[in-house]
């Protein structure tokens, strides 16, 4: 799979999660990664399952949904190019909190959660940067969720 590396390198350097790392750090990450093509409609992972890999979307969109009895799979968020999905794999045992399905044909970089964690252990500086970035991803995710919760367009709410 070595031949894929220059491609992965480019994809990683374009993603907000992994941009602006030094070359050595990017190379290490590349070694922990693979390119993952996902045709439209394909399930990337399922809510409740253990998953070691986290994904950086290079192109295409992924729908994140949760299963709600009586309502089926409810789509809560669409992630797109540059976004990180399946982050649970980076910080825990990787039990997925949502189901991810490709909304269109996607290309993703799949990073091994275990390998990345090991990298972070051995290179605390990389670990620090990645964890800060992960925190940023999560904080954006929380903000977006809060804005959803506020239901700003509800009838009788703001007239806009």
């Amino acid at each position: 799979m070595i031949h894929q590396q220059p491609n992965i390198l480019k994809m990683l350097s374009e993603s907000r999660f992994t941009e602006n790392l030094n070359n050595q750090q990017l190379q290490s990450l590349c070694r922990a990664s693979r390119v993952h093509s996902l045709p439209a409609g394909t399930i990337l992972f399922q809510e409740g399952e253990l998953e070691d890999e986290v994904f950086v979307i290079s192109s295409g969109h992924v729908r994140l949904s949760m299963s709600v009895p009586g309502r089926g799979n409810v789509v809560l968020l669409t992630s797109g190019p540059g976004d990180l999905v399946g982050w649970s794999g980076l910080i825990s045992d990787g039990r997925m909190t949502a189901t991810a399905v490709a909304a269109d044909d996607c290309v993703l970089v799949a990073l091994s959660g275990k390998r990345v964690r090991e990298l972070c252990e051995t290179d605390p500086q990389l670990g620090y940067v990645l964890m800060i970035r992960l925190a940023r991803v999560l904080s954006q995710r929380i903000l977006a969720t809060r804005l959803q919760l506020l239901d700003l367009f509800r009838p009788g709410g703001d007239s806009r």
């Binding site: 729908r63 789509v75 809560l76 954006q140 903000l143 959803q148």
Partner: peptide
């Protein structure tokens, strides 16, 4: 902003 039956477009607030 919110999930909707039959909607295949983007879900999430506009800032995303």
């Amino acid at each position: 902003d919110r999930p909707a039956d039959g909607w295949h477009g983007n879900v999430g607030v506009v800032t995303t």
